[in-house]
Nucleic acid binder design. Structure first.
Lengths: 350, 350
DNA sequence: ATGGTTTGGGAAATCGTTTTCTCACCTGTG
DNA sequence: CACAGGTGAGAAAACGATTTCCCAAACCAT
């Protein structure tokens, strides 16, 4: 044993591997990367030494040379984690096997200074790329991204047509929901949704209209816009099912802009003695399971496939990092329908 | 033109700053770090050059030399983000001004291989420390941490007495809730909570008992353990307020193990025509606002101060990284009461 | 003037890898 | 035997910063 070899706190370097295998550092490096020319015997000896010593290359040293850090930054202002965490999970899934890690940078809307500090830290650390994500798809973060040179991808966050953005296909999701209601035999499908200042509200309304027209029907009533809350769903039920409204003028199904609205609406119906799904079917949006499962009966809803969204964003990020050309523009990923019981269990399942 | 292929302009290095200021690299470095000796004039010239060129030191180069990466890893299996996101936010707050960034490593319980890959990536990247966080405070992540040499802090995740862990003071939180109920004039405080396989359930029960005894009362009934769901809260109401139970045998207040249970219970009471807070007061636990605000009436509940928990963990992490001695052991941070209306608004506010 | 001390600033080593040269040696061919 | 071409492996130069020397010049006191 050599002096100093007992120092277990220090990391094992390639130098020690080389010495252990009786070769030079350069040869060791080539063997470990499968690069240079050498006898099979030498290569095996080096590999064996490396695994015996549990050698792991220092990412900083490698990064310094390759001008790559094998890290990406994820900026988000979504403190609830409703959107960000599934997305981050998908991103991480796509990247971790390539040895790329994700920096989480929580950005508070009211603290642009800290946000800027975060961005600068990302620059200093030479992140290979940046992901910008948000709580709502039609707003930007309080950050100046124009001066950055690294590739940037937006996920559920506003971006221009020459940038790269991944979004949920809100229109298709809404169509899916409404088509499911028609397919279940409903004929009067109302729509209760969030504030009309949100782009997604307009898109979901559009999807609802398209699907209604596809069934040769005018959309039932006007869409009711309000807030993303249970309270609004509850209040909307009052409007749709007030005592004065004749039963033929009432919807027999409601497509809700999110699961919270659906929940509030379902509660109000229960209080009125209107049965779900017998009298009225409900479809929500989000598949936020903690809500969808708590509705009585459990809520059929639209899942936005956020994990998949993150995964695809991660894959595109890899291509960008490796310098392969990626066409700019927006990508819209399809939603899927999650059937529970608020539309009648199995009613339309062959 | 493809997105991302933008001018990957080379970074400004200290060499260019030095050249610009007409000094050597070493002098430039010293000026920028306030270290060496030189005329005030020289120092200012260098600083001016640096800011003109917008020089930012390369964190990888610095890290390589200092054997520090100015990053920490955050491992978590909390896919909902209920706990992790506030904690991460607090950690980031404490660290960002020190130039330390946070790697987010989502760990799926059913995918220990990916978890291990994540940990190895943290090692390769020489993170200065690791934070291990979880969905529940009495379980470990499917990761082998024993072989790691960097400092580790646990936040809301099981750890031994010789490790460093930050936890919520569940007992104090429960006491706070129950004391508030007594202070509001209630006398029969029941407790409905989650599965008794959770340590926090036992702790919250203990707090409930302590506070009851402090008011010279035996705890009212046995604690009802079940699930962390609204459905269980709903069902528990049936048990506590069944038709056969004489009104003197019914609780006039319920302390619930979390906000979801509280919500289910409140719903069930509403259906039975029992008024909150007039007939029965309710206190929840978690202050998960999306639930607490949706309860009718809005829920008085216990906030676990998770952001603060993260911030303190972050500060301790810094001390650990800088080599200052930190006593091992568990820290328990106090909860605070958030008053809404489910105990009677302002009833006990001076 | 001389010797010692401070002062300003630069040269060079270092961190751990990768990569490009370079070079000695071997093999086969004329 | 000479020479081209291939083969295996090492030396050294990067990458960008920090830090430890080290050395002139300037300054001071005798």
């Amino acid at each position: 044993m050599f002096a100093g070899s007992a120092n277990r706190s220090a990391r094992v370097t390639i130098r020690e591997v080389a010495h252990h295998a009786g070769v030079s550092v350069s040869t060791a490096s080539k063997a470990l990367n499968g690069n240079g020319r050498m006898t099979e015997d030498t290569r095996e000896r080096i590999l064996k030494a490396a695994s015996e010593l549990q050698f792991r290359p220092n990412a900083m040293a490698r990064g310094l040379l390759k001008q790559r850090s094998f890290t990406v930054g994820l900026l988000t202002n979504d403190t609830y984690g409703r959107f960000t965490l599934p997305v981050a999970s998908g991103i991480s899934e796509a990247l971790v096997d390539e040895g790329v890690s994700v920096f989480l940078c929580p950005v508070l809307d009211n603290d642009p200074r800290r946000a800027q500090v975060n961005v600068e830290a990302m620059q200093d650390k030479c992140v290979d790329a940046l992901i910008v994500s948000g709580r709502r798809a039609d707003a930007r973060l309080p950050i100046d991204l124009a001066s950055l040179t690294m590739p940037i991808i937006h996920v559920y966050s506003e971006c221009g047509p020459n940038e790269i953005g991944f979004f949920v296909d809100e229109v298709q999701g809404a169509r899916l929901a409404v088509e499911h209601l028609y397919a279940s035999g409903r004929t009067r499908v109302a729509h209760v949704t969030g504030p009309d200042s949100f782009d997604v509200v307009a898109k979901r309304i559009a999807g609802w209209r398209e699907a209604s027209r596809a069934h040769d029907r005018d959309p039932f009533l006007q869409p009711l816009t309000g807030a993303w809350t249970e309270a609004w769903g509850f209040a909307a039920a009052e409007r749709l099912f007030a005592n004065g409204v004749p039963s033929a003028g009432r919807p027999d199904a409601v497509f809700c802009g999110n699961d919270q609205i659906a929940r509030g609406l379902a509660d109000a119906l229960a209080l009125r003695g209107i049965k779900v799904p017998e009298d009225v079917a409900i479809v929500g949006f989000d598949n936020w399971e903690i809500f969808a499962d708590a509705v009585r009966p459990p809520l059929t809803t639209i899942d936005m496939n956020l994990v998949e969204l993150g995964r695809q964003a991660g894959q595109t990020l890899l291509e960008l990092i490796e310098g392969r050309p990626v066409a700019p523009g927006h990508r819209y990923l399809p939603c899927r329908l999650i059937q529970r019981r608020s539309c009648g269990a199995g009613r339309d399942m062959s």
